[in-house]
Computed example of a mutant assay.
Amino acid sequence: MLDRRQALGLTALGLISPALAPTGEPEVETLRLWPGAAPGGEGVTVTPEVVERSTDPAFHDRIAKHTRDPLLTVVRPARSNGVSMLLIPGGGYRWAVVDKEGMDCARVFAAMGYTCYVLRYRLPADGWAAGPDAPLQDAQRALRLVRAHAVAEGRAADRTVVLGASAGGHLAGLLGARPDATYAPIDNADQYAYRPDALILLYPVATLTAPYAHAGSRRELLGESPSPDQIAAYSLEQMDWTGAASTFLLHAMDDTAVPVENSLMLSATLRQARVPVEVHLFEEGGHGFGIRLIEGRPAAVWPDLVRGWLGRRGL
């Protein structure tokens, strides 16, 4: 938990909503990513919306559309293991999932001791000046902010891992592969590194090339008719991963939305770049299973596989 002094300081910086600033009780708080407006929003006219898709009162299945004020939702463990985890849910870059690959996963990893931060990011087709790099601006800023918060709360900045799923796996992959900063520094949080210390990708959108691309993600990211150069620039398997963090890949063989070839192609690239990589393939599971949709099936062990893999790296 943040103490009162830390909470008041973050509220004063505009990074935590006063209504959600902890007073000693909640284990979940919401942090604003940017102290002012998100960069490059002069031409943005969309209206933010959070839609509940679940008809079962026992669980949420929310999606965030047209986000203009990106957020980090923090889920804290009862006892911290000293490691921070940034979670980037999917949504095909058309929306960002809130629960299935966000809060649901965060609660599981918080129970293991990880301090979890779920990212609600901007979408590339909403008119942001950075275009396809708008989500990456949010991801880079989020990772830096997570590190800054870790230091303020007594955790090490260099024990920060990133977990991305589906299109969020693509965004997490960009975060891991690209060495260039996508926005100008705005405060002290931006002194921290914006590449992860370990990377976990669940059924990731990796390639934007036919025939294995997820067409919806490519369209939302690059438009209806991207050039070959644009496609190559945002295909993870065509990037230079030299010096990237150790990477964990997980995919179901029967995934018809994002074919398993996405993980296979990316793993080959990582091996060529001498990036330590572990790959888990399951016969069944489909796409977008998160935590709840894989219960009772072999792939349900994936959080324990991740914990074991991180543990072997001292994380």
Score class of each variant (00 low, 15 high):
N188K: 13
A157I: 05
R219K: 14
Q6S: 12
G164P: 09
R147H: 02
G286C: 07
A157S: 08
Y114S: 04
L20S: 13
P303L: 10
L202N: 14
V118Q: 05
G285K: 07
G82W: 06
A210D: 15
A172H: 06
A198W: 01
R53V: 03
R5D: 14
G102Y: 05
A150E: 00
G82R: 03
G164K: 07
G90L: 03
T23N: 12
V44N: 05
L222K: 04
S225V: 11
E153C: 13
S166I: 02
A244P: 10
I294H: 03
T242C: 11
A125C: 02
T45V: 13
A150V: 04
E237L: 09
L145M: 09
G173M: 08
A150R: 01
R62I: 08
P39V: 07
P211R: 07
W95G: 01
Q140L: 01
D240V: 08
S225G: 07
S227K: 05
R32F: 14
A273K: 15
A233Y: 08
V279S: 09
A233S: 15
R307K: 14
L136S: 04
D187T: 11
G154C: 06
A110D: 09
A150D: 03
E261F: 12
P276Q: 11
T207D: 05
A206I: 04
D254Y: 03
L31W: 15
V83P: 02
P228N: 05
T47H: 09
D3C: 10
G314Q: 10
G43I: 01
L250G: 10
D99V: 05
T242Y: 06
E101H: 06
P77Q: 12
I294P: 00
T209G: 07
E220I: 00
S267F: 03
E284A: 13
P39M: 02
I63L: 12
G311M: 04
E153G: 09
Y192W: 15
G311E: 11
S166P: 03
L270D: 10
V44E: 03
Q238A: 15
L15A: 07
K100M: 11
V275Y: 07
A142E: 04
L8H: 05
V260Q: 09
R312C: 01
F282A: 04
E261L: 13
G314A: 04
A37F: 00
S54T: 09
A12S: 12
L208E: 00
R292M: 02
R76W: 10
Y192F: 15
C105W: 01
L315K: 00
H149N: 10
V277I: 13
L222P: 01
D255T: 14
L222I: 04
E220H: 14
E49A: 12
I231S: 02
T45K: 08
A148W: 08
M85K: 09
A165T: 14
D254C: 11
W309C: 11
V83T: 15
A130C: 03
Y192E: 13
A64P: 06
P70F: 03
P298S: 02
G314N: 07
T160G: 04
A21N: 13
